[in-house]
Design a protein around this nucleic acid. Structure first.
Length: 134
RNA sequence: ACAGGCAGCCGGAUAGCUGCGCCUAGGAAAGUAAGAUCCAUAGGUGAGGAAAGUCCGGGCUUCAAGGGAACAAGGCACCAGAUAACGUCUGGCUGGAGCAAUCCAAGUGACAGUGCCACAGAAAACAUACCGCCUGAUAACAUCUGUCAUCAGGUAAGGUUGAAAAGGCGGGGUAAGAGCCCACCGCGGAUGGAGCAAUUCGUUCGGCAAGGUAAACCAUGCCCGAAGCAAGACCAAGUUAGGAGAGCUUUGCAAAAAGUUAUACGGAGGGUUCCCACUCUACUCCAGAGGUAGGUCGCGCCGAGCUGUUUAGCGAUAAACAGCCAAGAUGAAUAGCUAUCGCCUGCUUUUGGCAGGUACAAAACCCGGCUUAUAGGCUGCCUGAUUUU
RNA sequence: GGAUGAGUGGCAGAGAGGCUGAAUGCGCGCGACUCGAAAUCGUGUAUACGGGGAGACCCGUAUCGGGGGUUCAAAUCCCUCCUCAUCCG
């Protein structure tokens, strides 16, 4: 499987608008199908905003995300999809095992949502009542 | 020992596995608009003292290129030196802080001119007379060294206000007072010695000259063209509509029309203005179209370069010699895991063990500074009042 | 990466050395009008520390993004740091 990195702003926006997202404590993952169905390679992008900290903190967060992708994606990611990983406040400092676990969880959940787009919307509506306890 | 001051340095170390950027060499395939690209290949190399803030000064690039001058705006400001340059650095002077080592200072000019100094206070810049003090006159009371009121004058000692009130202190002097006079200190002029100079040490004269503010305008001296690597150069693909002005050619008596930007007398344009000399462009201005998902260079093997030694100098620094070539990305390379050791804190306990921590922060064209952030540690020199042994 | 501009009560926004703790508007609190509300009118409204008072409240000091300087005196002038916003081929 080939893993390429996103380099254009347009691609990042497309993944955010057309895809699904899952948020964990250590990382936020967005995913969307590729533009053309024939394109079977996997694209990944990394975003670390100024909110995270100064330049060296952002760099470390991005490098850890890149390491996670090398470690996890060959096993868990699907072909023909675009993923965007966004760093959160603890990304640069949390234990590696936690970051790995969160990413795998996020990927699995995303694939559920993407494979059943019609049902996915129903699930989102169905979830809130579980939180409300009378 | 303790406390303090100054100068300089370090910014965790080692090993293993997986993985990344760039360079060189080698190999492979494909021919692209231009540029490319790929590899279980090999070797090399890969973030700081502040890489930061962008506060100064340069290199470099564009404005066609070069020289000179001026206005405006801005900057700097004790003296001498260092430097490519600086608002930086070094040495000194003056003033201030400290027992001292040492540290701090935008440190020119307020007799060129203008402005401002609220409130309070009698008076705030041509000083002034509110209270007070003193003298005289008049009236009253008292009764003879008086008291009080009013008027006229003298006064800058004392009081009040304020950030600031016209040299300070002591003595003489006087009706009361006053640099009115004298000594010392301060201040100003002249002059001699030391020093490149800022300045300093004397000598002598003057009775004293009239506040503060220039980080208010300003004056004096010196500096300064503007914009910035998203500067800019080249390559590739694609799109578009003209109008006004200027020059030239042709037709025409002229008005005007058509064509054109080859030649260049004049004219125009090429950095705010002006001048000089030389030169360039055919166009200049307005409007319109496309594009802002292209590529290469600029961009780091040669520099105000780095390291070391010697010499000159108090020093900043300079010169000579020897050695070295050390990131170059562009949604942007250093990460993940493991082991051992170092340092710090806490607990338990004294062979040690356990837990946690190990700063500030990462190149983006490149240098010289300044400023700000910074765990912990090392080295050298110096000082100590009434610290301790 | 580079270049500009701004920061003042809860919000917007004047003030550009002294009478400004701070104009003006919005908001908020209290009161009046009303049966009640709106509108209108009146009045008040920043924070911290210290002191006084039985209490309502009063007095003093400091604060105009933070720190330092010039000045008798700074929101205002100068230096420096922080934060926010805008622009670039």
């Amino acid at each position: 499987m080939e893993i390429c990195t996103l380099k254009k702003r347009k691609d990042f926006i497309r993944a955010a608008e057309k895809g699904q997202k899952v948020c964990t404590h250590s990382v936020l993952v967005q995913a969307a199908p590729n533009k053309s169905a024939e394109d079977l390679s996997t694209y990944t992008g990394f975003t670390t905003t100024k909110k995270l900290g100064k330049a060296n903190v952002r760099n470390r967060a991005r490098r850890r995300l890149r390491a996670i992708v090398r470690d996890v994606f060959p096993q868990f990611a699907l072909e023909g999809y675009t993923y965007v990983l966004i760093g959160r406040f603890i990304t640069a400092e949390c234990p590696y095992a936690m970051l790995r676990k969160d990413t795998i969880y996020a990927l699995k959940k995303l694939h559920k949502l993407l494979n059943a787009p019609d049902k996915g919307s129903e699930n989102e509506v169905a979830v809130p009542p579980a939180d409300c306890q009378h």
